[in-house]
Design a protein around this nucleic acid. Sequence first.
DNA 1: ACCCAGGGTCATA
DNA 2: TATGACCATGGG
Length: 232
Amino acid sequence: MPRRSAFLSVFDRLLSAHGPQHWWPGETPFEVMVGAVLTQNTAWSNVERAIVALKENAALDPECLLAAAPATVARWIRPAGYFNVKAKRLRNFCRWYLKQGGYDVLARRETGALRHGLLSVNGIGPETADDILLYAFERPVFVIDAYTRRLFSRLGMCEADAGYEPLRAAVEQALARELTRSRGAGRAVWKRNSVPLYNEYHALIVAHAKRSCRARPLCQDCCLAGICPGRQ
DNA sequence: ACCCAGGGTCATA
DNA sequence: TATGACCATGGG
């Protein structure tokens, strides 16, 4: 079992090692949503090219994406890989998004219902849905990805094969306990702090993975911080 | 020439 | 329910 402030401690060490990340890299909520789909199992540098292409074609917009032929969208997003699959997924998402009434309507929905709706779209799985919930709708949802599971399991804070939902619930509950105790004020403070904490935490885990020991065998930041995940 | 990347779906047993 | 195949580009 992790010690009582394990998750906050790791957060503090990641923050001092890598600095604030200011995520998500995207100018509008809709750009965040598109990026969340495009980055599925794909390096962000490739996603950026695809988003630039969408902007150049004035297509970073749900109506435009739906109006364009799937093959055309696939051509625009080609650098992001899996372009046929992702063109279809973007289409599914835009259809749902507009049918629901767009951002302002969705933003009024309760988090659980919004999450359920996102997951009903073919091509939106738990991580993509949670990226959208946290970074486009600012909901208190801790995003789990392969890096997160790897880091926490190597630190002995979860099982290596922990399922998505159990791990998410465990991390959220642990952080809630740690934060309400260590910063001492109870539920109101927790609710105010959880979104920026989750935002920065996930961003830091990704930044940490990108700067891992493959690139720098003796990298000072993560190894000195005692949280270097290394490589498989 | 490898391996990996900010997943998810579908078919099979 | 639990694996495996599949999707595809670009950088190290």
